[in-house]
Design a protein around this nucleic acid. Structure first.
Lengths: 340, 340
DNA sequence: GTTATATTTGTAATCGTTTACAATTTAATT
DNA sequence: AATTAAATTGTAAACGATTACAAATATAAC
């Protein structure tokens, strides 16, 4: 492997000039710039990153710690982060905390070791509760999960509003007894619950909510209890994609059809929400935009460490499909049977 | 930040001893080991990775280049890779090539720059066609996609066999005119097509196959042609999850129900395959195992650079659900209507 | 108690860059 | 042409670890 001194010799200049050209620094004449670039080409020189990072004390690397890589929300976010980061000559280290606070702490430690320029983090609840930016040696941008009073850069959905709108739509469609099953282990679940409660209160309706661990199985079990009792709720709503999946499974187990026997709605517009007949009404998150906003916010923060704390709130989009249809009305699609 | 010499001073030993303790090398007495560890604790010392990597010329980092991070297959693989890697004190750089050969080449270049210990790669077709391990400065393990004659470490599904079994099952169920829509841009699509052709030939049946770009839209368009014509095929099969999704959308558009009017089967057991009534018959890939096998193979290769080339072939599991049911028979589930 | 051997320790060179600073060249001004 | 200022270039000292190699110490063998 060619080194910087080989290039310098070949180009007939000093190593300093080569370094300056490689880093794109000013203060080097066009003539030497050309000669250096030629030598670089000729020798296929690539600067040694370890040496560069040691000396310059910068890594141009950012860390992305997601709570669950299997969640399509985070894969889409990570695509955006990666795209923008590489456009800005930054590397990305992607870590999956699997909703485990210990793993999360481990990865945050690792970020310190790697001396990253910054981190994008979707924190677990305990980490968020104790989160202070000053505890970290690098700037942090929170995504997806953030409390109202967390003093940190963040990019989040308008969770309360979105849940309010989703619930309101169910109410508009004639549903009254609306059960809400939400994730107990994340800030988003709590905030979406808040929006649900608020919408129910506005319309003078009683709430039927239950907090569960954010897994398909827990949601199915919880929903199983609701649908096993009589009277049935008019509608079931879930605070995220996994929970929604659990709700559907519970309905299938109980041989209940939606929307004829019980309506359904939730968060996250996953690939299957329009496939499951007659389609499921959801709040769609602007996932790519969230990632993009997060990395841009982080790059700004890195460039201006003292600028004031910013919070970007993006709006969820209500996508209404058959699952939230009016009660006591025949399914409008291909199904022939009405009310079991 | 404490440095190695601070620790050495605090512990009353030389920097060499500290280094040896940190690296877990032998040849240091238990007494000094303890004193060093105490000093490390006291000063909260963490070795500088850039310095270590520069001097030792090792990064203990592996690269994982996946073709499409949105594909659940790859997210699951990446979880496994990450788990095993971190257990072995290795870092992972995850890159998403988005099925774009140029991006892929860029990332492979980046891996060289990062001086990674090894790379796990699911190559695009052009890269695979010209793939020679010796072209890279690091060991490479291929996953998911590999030709029969590629001389490289690899972990793949038994694509031909799995497709053969899937097709055979459709034939057993009474289907004769089976259309197969497969991805033209990956080795897996081609191999699964081969298995389909082979099964059809074994049973003396004519093939109805079409290669498409591996996207939902392309699959829907292609399937749209089949289902627009008469006579209808008896069954539709797709070579991966995205294509399967396209097939279902095409059926919905044409108001065709499965399995009553046309049967359906495919690859990849995604979260929704059992939700779409009456469930879709698929070949499930052991995704986590594939990732695990890949990283283990890579670690072995790193430890023994000259060992002979290995290929791990994992078996796909046929999961039969309602979508492949016998022709001319009423749906056995909740649906009331028979044959449109 | 010597000698030989094995184990443990320390010194100092090294990894390949960046960058402060000084030295030089070029351009601008008088 | 002399002087000053600006732009360019080069020299050499970092950056913070690892690791030959030599030196010192402990252990074993006789």
């Amino acid at each position: 492997m060619a080194q910087i001194k080989d290039v310098a010799k070949q180009a007939g200049v000093s190593v300093a000039s080569v370094s300056r050209v490689m880093a794109g620094h000013a203060g080097v004449s066009e003539a030497t710039r050309q000669r250096v670039l030629e030598a670089v080409q000729a020798l296929d020189y690539r600067p040694d990153l370890a040496a560069r990072r040691l000396r310059s004390r910068r890594t141009d690397t950012i860390g992305l710690i997601v709570s669950d890589i299997r969640n399509p929300f985070f894969t889409e976010v990570s695509r955006a982060v990666e795209d923008v980061a590489y456009q800005n000559r930054m590397r990305v280290i992607l870590c999956n905390a699997d909703e485990d606070p210990e793993k999360e702490a481990l990865y945050l430690d690792l970020m310190r070791d790697e001396n990253v320029s910054g981190v994008i983090l979707s924190p677990t609840l305990p980490t968020l509760a104790r989160f202070h930016p000053s505890d970290y040696s690098f700037p942090v941008v929170l995504i997806d999960r953030c409390d109202r009073d967390t003093a940190a850069d963040a990019v989040v959905l308008d969770n309360v509003d979105s849940a309010y709108r989703l619930t309101s739509r169910l109410i508009e469609r004639g549903h009254r007894r609306i059960a809400f099953i939400y994730g107990a282990t994340s800030a988003t679940g709590q905030q979406r619950h808040e929006g649900y409660v608020s919408a129910m209160a506005t319309h003078g309706l009683e709430t039927l909510a239950k907090a569960v661990p954010a897994t398909v199985d827990a949601a199915r079990a919880a929903a199983g209890e609701w649908v096993g009792r009589r009277p049935l709720p008019d509608a079931l709503a879930g605070s995220n994609g996994l929970i929604l999946l659990g709700l559907i499974e519970a309905l299938r187990e109980a041989h209940l059809r939606f929307p004829e026997q019980i309506a359904l709605a939730g968060f996250d517009d996953l690939p299957w929400t329009h496939l499951v007949e007659p389609g499921i009404t959801v709040i769609a998150q602007p996932t790519y935009d969230i990632g993009q906003a997060a990395i841009e916010l982080l790059l700004q923060r890195i460039a201006h460490p003292t600028q004031s704390v910013r919070r970007v709130v993006l709006r969820g989009e209500l996508r209404e499909r058959g699952s939230s249809a009016m009660r006591k009305q025949a399914g409008s699609g291909t199904k022939a049977t009405v009310e079991g």
